Simulated scan of single mutants.
Amino acid sequence: MNTATDIGMIIHGIRLPITSEDVSPIIWQALESGKYEAKEARQVRKLLHTGDRVLELGAGIGVITAVMAQTPGVTIWSFDANPHTIELAERVAAANEIDNVTFRQGLLMSGAPETHSFYVRRDFWMSSMIESQGPYEDVIDIGSQNLEAFIAEHEVNVLVMDIEGAERDLLAAADLDGIDRVFMELHDHLYGLAGVRDIFASMNGHGFSYDPRNSSGPCVMFTRDDGTPRTYCEE
């Protein structure tokens, strides 16, 4: 559950200086109940190590970003195509005195830069590049940047994604050189189990293994692995 403060609420240990006017009723209810991104918050606390350089695609309102930023010595770059959520994420970072995150509105994709249509929805977690996903409030055209160039330039070694179905195509095309861990939310309601199979095949092709100890339901972790057996764990 969350708790109330003079600047809003606290969820997953993060101060959240937003109001019900900033988000849809469904998202506000999830925040009030403490269920908002609860699985992701639990898993990312185990994901990072001191010195990691993290690229987050799909910042949302910055809750998971802020949780990750609590790991000592990490540096995070966090992107979202939605200008409203980026503004909220920056507000959350300021309220939590976070200085190791750089937020940017934009898209990172493999290949040459292109202009894409992004469909903004009241429930911002449904905003995506998929028009058929449902009714939308606005559509914005946004130019992409090259993912591989950004990873190389900033020496990123951890990729975190919650991009509402776009992960299927991104991982099929991307070159993940330099990345040793990938954490993402799967969206089988958008691409079915066939899409999940495609993602696992792409990650296998990139040299990653599914990490069951750091995954929970649709929130999955892939890790580069040399095949060495792990110490037995009962959990």
Rank of each mutant, 00 (worst) to 15 (best):
M1F: 14
T5H: 01
I7D: 12
I7P: 12
G8D: 10
I11Y: 03
I14D: 10
R15E: 12
P17L: 06
P17C: 06
I18Y: 03
T19E: 15
V23Q: 02
S24K: 09
W28N: 01
E32R: 09
G34W: 01
Y36Q: 13
Y36G: 11
Y36D: 12
E37W: 05
Q43M: 07
Q43W: 00
L47M: 05
R53T: 03
R53K: 14
L57C: 10
V63H: 06
I64C: 01
T65A: 06
A69S: 15
Q70Y: 06
T71K: 15
P72A: 08
G73T: 01
W77M: 06
W77I: 01
S78T: 07
F79Q: 05
P83V: 10
P83D: 08
T85R: 08
I86L: 07
E87M: 10
N96T: 02
N96D: 07
D99F: 00
G106V: 00
L108P: 02
M109W: 12
M109Y: 12
S110E: 07
E114P: 00
H116G: 01
F118E: 02
R121V: 08
F124Q: 03
S128P: 06
E131S: 10
S132N: 14
G134S: 09
G134F: 12
P135Q: 11
E137V: 08
V139H: 15
D141V: 01
G143S: 13
G143P: 13
S144H: 07
Q145I: 01
A152Y: 12
H154I: 00
E164N: 12
A166P: 04
E167N: 12
R168F: 03
R168N: 09
D169V: 10
D169M: 14
A172Y: 14
A172V: 04
A172P: 15
A174G: 08
L176F: 08
L176W: 06
D177M: 11
I179A: 04
R181L: 07
F183C: 02
F183S: 02
F183M: 04
H187T: 02
H187I: 03
L190K: 07
G195T: 11
V196E: 14
R197K: 12
R197F: 14
D198Q: 14
F200K: 12
N204R: 13
D211M: 10
R213A: 11
R213P: 00
V220C: 11
F222W: 04
G227V: 05
C233D: 14
